[in-house]
Design a protein around this nucleic acid. Structure first.
Lengths: 250, 250
DNA sequence: CACCTTAGTTGATCTGGATCAGGATTTTGT
DNA sequence: ACAAAATCCTGATCCAGATCAACTAAGGTG
C-alpha cells in the first residue's frame, strides 16, 4: 500500500509563499494569536507582524529537549510530532501527539526551561515565533497574551482527558478514545474523520495510553474483529462510529 | 487523637483584617498576580487593587460544578479542596488537591465553562477575584496576564507529573510521590514537611492516584512496616525521607 | 450514653493486562 | 536487489492490583 497520509497529501507546501503569510497561517495553530478581542477573524496586519520563520525537521529529530531554555512557540504546517515527559529512571510517558494545524510549546513558560521533550514523527514543517519577539509584540498588543492563555487552557483540558483515561479507563476504552480524538482533530483541520493514517507506531500509542505495545496490537485486532474499525499497519478506517463512541465516551 | 491539622492550627483567621490586604495575601496564591515585570516582590498598590472578597465554605460544598460559567479565580486562605473530572458514566478522576496558599480556577478560561468540579474537604476560606474585575484590571496592568500564564503553566507541569504517575509508576511509587509532593508543598507554605495531617480520605487518595481504596490502605501499612512513614488515619509522619525519595523519584 | 454512620483496615480470590517468546511483514540502508 | 533493522502481530504464562467480604475504630447525633 502506498504511503498516502491524508495530511501529507492534502497540504501542498508548494502552494504557499516563502513567508508565513496571513493566508498560510489560517489553519495554523498560531492563527488565533492574531485575534483581537471580540472578533472571530484574526487581524491580517497583526498576523503579518507576528510573522514567523519556518523550520523543516526530519523523523527522529527533536524540536526541543529536556531542560533546554524555551526559545519559541510553534505551529505545525504539516507533519506531526510527539511530546513526552520522563521519570527519574528513564521511563517515558507520551503526553500528546501534535498534528497539522496545532500550536505547540506554550507549556513550559513558567520555568523558562522545557520540562518535556518533543520529537518529530515524520517529515514536518513548523512555524516558529521566537519568544522574545512575541514578548515585545504583546506589550503593544495585549490581546496576544489573552490568546496565549486560551491556547494553554485548551492544553490543560487535553491533559484532564488524558488523566481520566490513564486513571479510570480500561485498555479498550483508551484506544477507542484515542482513535476518536484523532478522528475529530483531523476533521477540524479539513481531513476525513473516517479514514486516516497514523504517524506513530503501536509502541508510541501504548506509551501514550499507558498500556503495553502488545496490548495495543491486540486491541487493534479486537476492534477490527468486532467491526468497529479496519486497520492495517498505519492506516485506519472507522467503520462503526457509534459503537466506537459508546466505548470511548463511557 | 485531637484534630490538629497543622495548617488549621498555624493560620489564625482572627489575625487578619476583614479585607484581603497585601499582607494577608503574601502567602496567597494570587499574590504573584501583583508582581510587576522583573520584580520579586508584588506591588502593594496593585495588590490592593486586585483586592478580593472572601468566601467561607464547609466540607462537602462545591466551589464550582461541571458546566457552570467560570466566574472568578480563587486562592486558598486556609483549608483545602479537591478538583476532579468525570467520565461519561460517572467515574471520577481527581486531578488535584489544593491546599493553603495555592491558586485555583484558571484552568477553564478557554471555554468559559468549568470542565471540572471542585469540592471542599474541610472548613475552608478563599480569596475570590471575579473574572470581569481581573479582566478590566489587566487591560491597564498587562503584567497580570503574564502572571496568569505562569500560574497556568505551573498547573500544566503538575498535570505532566500526574500523567507520568498514572501511566508509568506502580502503586507504591505513586503513594510515595504523593506524600513527598504534599510534604514539599506544606514546607513551601511554612509548615513542617515531616509531620502533617491529611484532609482527604484514603478513597480520595486512591481516586487521585488511580488505585483502589483498599490498595491505598495496604500501601500505607506497607510503607509503615518498612519504616518509611508512620501513619495513623489522617496524620502522617515521614520517617525516612531518603528512602521515600528513592521510591518516588524513580 | 447508646446508637449509627463513615472511614479505615485486612484477608481471600480473581483478572486485565504485563511480560516473555517467537514469527511475519515492512521499511531502510547500501 | 539484498540484507538488516524496525515494526507489527500472536500465543503462553504470570502477577500487581482490583474486587468482594468482613471486621474495627472513630466520630457524630439524639
Amino acid at each position: 500500500m502506498p504511503r498516502l497520509l491524508n495530511h501529507t497529501v492534502s497540504v501542498e507546501p508548494t502552494a504557499e509563499a516563502a513567508a508565513c503569510t496571513a493566508v498560510a497561517c489560517r489553519n495554523c495553530g498560531l492563527y488565533q494569536l492574531g485575534r483581537l478581542p471580540g472578533r472571530e477573524e484574526a487581524d491580517p496586519t497583526l498576523l503579518q507582524r507576528i510573522a514567523c520563520s519556518r523550520r523543516q525537521l526530519r523523523k527522529g529529530e527533536y524540536l526541543y529537549r529536556l531542560d533546554e531554555p524555551v526559545r519559541a512557540v510553534y505551529a505545525i504546517r504539516y507533519g506531526s510530532l510527539k511530546s513526552y515527559v520522563l521519570s527519574g529512571d528513564g521511563r517515558l510517558q507520551i503526553t500528546g501527539f501534535h498534528i497539522v494545524g496545532e500550536p505547540l510549546g506554550l507549556n513550559d513558560l513558567a520555568t523558562g526551561r522545557h520540562t518535556s521533550e518533543a520529537q518529530i514523527l515524520e517529515p514536518t514543517s513548523l512555524c516558529e515565533v521566537p519568544l522574545d519577539h512575541l514578548e515585545k509584540l504583546s506589550v503593544e498588543v495585549p490581546s496576544i497574551r489573552s490568546q496565549m492563555l486560551i491556547i494553554l487552557s485548551r492544553e490543560v483540558q487535553h491533559y484532564q482527558e488524558l488523566m481520566l483515561m490513564l486513571g479510570k479507563k480500561n485498555a479498550e476504552e483508551r484506544l477507542a478514545t484515542f482513535l476518536l480524538g484523532l478522528s475529530s482533530r483531523f476533521e477540524q483541520h479539513g481531513f476525513s474523520p473516517l479514514r486516516f493514517n497514523l504517524s506513530m507506531s503501536r509502541g508510541d500509542i501504548g506509551t501514550y495510553l499507558g498500556i503495553a505495545e502488545e496490548t495495543t496490537c491486540r486491541l487493534f485486532s479486537r476492534l477490527q474483529e468486532e467491526g468497529l474499525i479496519r486497520a492495517h499497519r498505519r492506516s485506519v478506517e472507522i467503520r462503526d462510529l457509534d459503537r466506537l463512541r459508546q466505548l470511548a465516551l463511557r
